[in-house]
Design a protein around this nucleic acid. Structure first.
Lengths: 236, 236
DNA sequence: ACATGTGAACTGCTTCACAGCG
DNA sequence: CGCTGTGAAGCAGTTCACATGT
């Protein structure tokens, strides 16, 4: 896991003082989201054997503009070659480093219902270095059963377990009614990063980072779009 | 389903030519997302027996500011009472109407894997008037089995079925590698609204509306936030 | 010649602040 | 007097356009 392990060739400038990894600017969330997307596109390109890619191609695949791609990357450094584009393997390595995917991330999933179970076995997580240490629930009928290699644990033991295993992230896959309460228990257990699948906004202390995925809300957004789309500028 | 059926009382101005339901302005996606959230908060308040709510309270629960709440609502009309706040039941009805939740939305789910199965039984969908007509897959072992009341159908019959049932929305819960292909089949079947759970951006014709939920990407966003958080202004 | 990297212009969402009204 | 509704100000993210470098 030495930094810069991915790219071969000689690294251009051994004397790059700061700037790269921990640029201390507040990067927009939308930018980070797009970086993840670029990474996926690059990996697909890599599998096809593509060695070089331009900001134009990256934008096309990623659903953006070339200027956006260049601007996003520029916040973290200069990874391309003028007149040529970006070396795919090199940029993959850089994005891995920028996004913090070089290390293992230890995850607890709270809620062994349908969604929790689906997430426990989700391949996309494992591929990115996210290890599910345990799935928690308070339903006695579920505790002890296995969900995709992972045994369902008693939610009452969350704090004790967390003290020992020190997970980095908790994924909340519980009903909206109890989400706030569960979040508080999770925070009290010392976990300060939460991925929330419950359809309610969580109120947490400032040091805790929350990201929410609200599926019902996205469906409603679609409904809105359908209802309102042809009433707006049919010419566009 | 007559427009304006929800709210009781006399509508303030019978002579309001346009403006209310189909305001022909392009409303920001972020605004629509917040409206869905307000709706959920209001419904919770309603269950607790709250009859009136201020923009301040709505903001608190919804994780925004009161000015934001008022601005969001103002795009669609004036629903509050100065000095008093909003009548909960009335605002619920208005938001239902605005978001297009007055009618039934017919949904196909494509992909009977873990995520597809979880979505097929997801309560949050049914509660909002989204009816899952069918789950599609091309795995012969799954076709014919039941996933939460819904029988898994042969993906090959999607176009034929869609011609008869005319679903409004397709939810894509398939692996990233085939997502683009599946999207094309879905669009060819005449479905022009897609909720995409695959971790790749879809390329579709302009008349098709796509909304994406990328769970792996959100996790990566959390990882980024964790890595970069204490390196930025420890004082904040 | 061609594509990156980036200051500057622009667009549009959010916040402010207060007039208007119950 | 309190809270809404909204024009105006502020700000952040995106797009433009071109200088820079290969």
């Amino acid at each position: 896991m030495a930094p810069g392990g991915g790219a071969c060739e000689i690294v251009h400038k051994p004397s790059r003082p700061e700037r790269s990894v921990n640029a201390d600017k507040p990067i927009a969330e939308s930018t980070v989201r797009r970086l993840s997307l670029y990474l996926r596109v690059l990996e697909q390109a890599q599998e096809r054997g593509t060695r070089t890619i331009s900001s134009d191609e990256l934008a096309e695949e990623g659903g953006t503009t070339s200027a956006q791609v260049r601007k996003d990357l520029s916040f973290f450094g200069s990874f391309g070659t003028r007149g040529r584009g970006y070396h795919v393997a090199e940029l993959v390595a850089e994005l891995h480093r920028i996004l913090g995917l070089g290390r293992e991330w230890r995850v607890y999933i709270v809620g062994a219902g349908r969604i929790g179970a689906a997430l426990a076995g989700y391949h996309g997580f494992v591929q990115r270095g996210f290890t599910v240490l345990g799935v928690y629930d308070n339903d006695a009928r579920l505790i002890g059963t296995a969900v995709d290699d992972v045994v369902v644990r008693d939610f009452g033991r969350l704090a004790t377990d967390a003290a020992a295993e020190r997970p980095d992230i908790a994924v909340l896959a519980v009903p909206g009614e109890v989400a706030q309460l569960v979040a508080e228990r999770v925070v009290a257990a010392g976990i300060d990063a939460i991925l929330n699948f419950a359809p309610v906004p969580l109120h947490v202390p400032a040091h805790v980072t929350v990201r929410s995925v609200n599926m019902a809300l996205e469906l409603e957004g679609l409904a809105y779009a359908i209802v309102h789309r042809d009433s707006v500028h049919p010419a566009a």
